[in-house]
Amino acid sequence: MAENANKLTDRIHYILPYLPGVLTIVIALPVWFAAGPILGILAGVLGMGCTLTCHRILVRVREISDQKACLDAQLIQSQKLAAIGELSSGIAHEINNPLAIIGQEVQWIRHIVDKAAIGSEHHAELDESVTEIGKQVKRCAEITHKLLDFARKRDPLIQGCDVNRLIEDMVRLVERETAQKNIAIVRNYHEGLPELYTDHPLLRQVILNLLNNATYAIDKDGTITVKTLRKGQDALEILITDTGCGITSENIRKVFNPFFTTKPPGKGTGLGLSLCHSIIHKLGGDIRVESEPGKGATFIIRLPMNYAEGENLI
């Protein structure tokens, strides 16, 4: 019921601005008969002009509200990521110390076991068990370190950068692994790009993570295409496309969320892309993904080209 009423008011809102113009056109005919063709035509033209202007204004208003909705969504996304980041780093911080203590105790137990239980029938079992505890503690520590790193406020340091060269360095590194899996890497660098002012190690980290994901998505036999291009006067895009498994429409909204992973347990932390997202935003750009499930995915980074050396981005 309420929905119907809403639709009705929507429709009225839509029609209302056109009303004066349409009325003027309608009135044009009687005016023609009453006051001759000149005034009649004048009224008609006036009406049409009025209608057209209204239409243009309406279209523009709709465009602007669409843009606003998009910006709102982006803002919510970054706020959400920031909140999750803060929460998880808080937890990581709290868990880190107990974890370190467990690690030390494990070493101590091992020392005692070696001394006291050597030769006893349970020695091997004890040894195995202590080793396993040590391994799992180490794994936990790796996760907490990643988390702390994710939330660390490392301000970007901005300096001039040959983007193509920076990317090529990372591609070479990845190529050592892709070569064995029959994955070809196609370079499509925009020649003669001006220097980009950015944070080198942060950008390296992003490119490496994306190339790593692409390699994992393909598994073997496929192609990764790396492309750079200029977007107008003051932006640059880096595209990393793979012919891997792609991302389902259900998952595509979640890939930048911390801890979202489709890797088997223990294989991935799901922090790679959320780290990329937070870095690229720190660098004043944005990152998005397009994918056709089963065919592959493209990650698109857009970076501003108008920052100067040493300038603070935030």
Binding site: K146, D149, M170, L173, P201, R204, Q205, L208, N212
Partner: peptide
Amino acid sequence: HGSVESGIQGMQMGAFDYVL
């Protein structure tokens, strides 16, 4: 003996560059 994994680790730990 560079690997992607160790490259990512290096950057994360604050290295400026990772060279083969």
